[in-house]
Simulated assay, not measured.
Amino acid sequence: MTDLTAYFTRIGYDGPREPTLAVLRDLLVLHTASIPFEAIDVLQDRGVDLAPEIVDAKLIDARRGGYCYEQNGLFKRVLTALGFEVEGRIARVRWNLPAGELLRPPTHMVLRVKIDGVAWLCDVGFGSCVPTAPLRWDLREPQRTGHEDFRLTDIGGDLLMEARLGEDWTPVYQVAPDVLLDQDYEINNWFSSTHPSSHFRHVLIVALTKPDARYVLAQNRLTVRRPSGEMERTMLDAEGLEHVLATTFGLPVSDDWRPLLERVAAAS
């Protein structure tokens, strides 16, 4: 069982503990603003262990971040403990997929949460374009969040999620209809954390979405994207990377991260 009190302290939540839409909205906003998306362990060949006690020790106790299987796995356990009806799903990422390129394999974990008979798409683990509000599963009109608008459309039996960036709708990912058990994600996690073609093996990606802005570190480039559309970009050296990881993202920077950060700064 996840320690709910420790989790709520981690994200700064002190509200009700009932399985309502209002509680779900609050938890989703606070989680994405408090627990960074990151896969630094993958870049350091340490792998990712999805055992609940390991994930909780990392993301809650050690105040680290994680990627989708860790983030949404933790969120699923929290919601289940609160009495929500939650299912795991798998999605094909289409974010930054060049036109005409083959679809990527399904590697992204998302959640389907049902409240009073209504299903909602929830995700706290997509990094730079994570939706900061639950999206109603059966609604096909644009849905507003604290950042971009999102919309869901049917595509070949899947559910396509798109984000409005400026005047354009950009595909984010498409969700398959099958329900996955927790153990079903082990193979996807193994691929994402160890396979040579996984981008997590080659690129430093850290993201945190707060009400005022999305903060995204891609290699040594920090992008700050505000709800208004205003954007700032800064290139960082190794010292700058350490500073941003510790301050902007609130990560406990370790001395053994330094060689990785120096490689990232030198290669960019």
Rank of each mutant, 00 (worst) to 15 (best):
D3F: 06
L4K: 03
T5N: 03
Y7V: 00
R10D: 08
Y13D: 08
D14C: 03
G15C: 10
P16F: 08
P19N: 04
P19I: 15
L21F: 09
L24D: 01
L24V: 14
R25T: 07
D26M: 11
D26E: 15
L27S: 10
V29Q: 15
L30Q: 13
A33D: 05
P36M: 00
A39H: 05
I40C: 01
I40R: 03
L43S: 11
L43D: 13
Q44W: 04
Q44N: 09
Q44E: 10
R46S: 01
G47R: 00
V48Q: 05
D49C: 08
L50Q: 05
P52H: 06
D56S: 06
K58P: 12
L59G: 13
L59A: 14
L59P: 14
I60D: 14
I60L: 15
I60Q: 12
R63L: 04
R64K: 05
G66F: 01
C68V: 13
Y69P: 09
E70I: 13
G73P: 12
L74Q: 05
K76I: 11
K76H: 15
K76G: 13
L79W: 04
L79K: 12
E85A: 02
E87Q: 13
G88P: 00
I90H: 01
A91T: 13
W95C: 04
L103M: 06
R104G: 10
P105C: 07
T107K: 07
H108I: 14
V110M: 10
L111N: 04
R112Y: 09
V118W: 00
L121S: 06
D123T: 04
V124Q: 05
G125H: 03
G127F: 07
C129H: 08
T132S: 15
T132A: 14
L135V: 05
L139P: 00
R140K: 08
E141F: 01
P142V: 01
Q143S: 10
R144F: 00
G146F: 10
E148S: 12
D149A: 03
R151S: 05
T153S: 14
I155V: 14
G156V: 12
D158I: 10
L160Q: 09
M161D: 08
G166M: 00
G166W: 03
G166Y: 00
E167M: 09
D168W: 09
W169L: 00
W169C: 02
Q174A: 02
D178G: 01
L181A: 13
D182P: 06
Q183E: 15
D184H: 12
N188L: 13
N188A: 13
W190H: 06
F191M: 12
F191I: 14
F191V: 12
F191A: 11
S192D: 15
S193F: 11
P196F: 12
S197D: 15
H199E: 13
H202W: 08
V203F: 02
V203N: 00
L204N: 13
L208I: 00
T209D: 07
K210G: 09
D212G: 09
R214H: 11
Y215N: 09
V216R: 11
A218N: 10
R221L: 04
R221P: 03
T223L: 09
V224D: 02
R226H: 14
E230I: 12
E232S: 12
T234Q: 15
M235Q: 15
L236Y: 01
A238M: 07
V244L: 05
L245D: 05
A246D: 11
A246M: 06
T247A: 08
T248H: 06
F249S: 07
L251Q: 10
P252S: 06
P252L: 04
S254L: 10
L260R: 03
R263D: 15
A265P: 02
A266M: 02
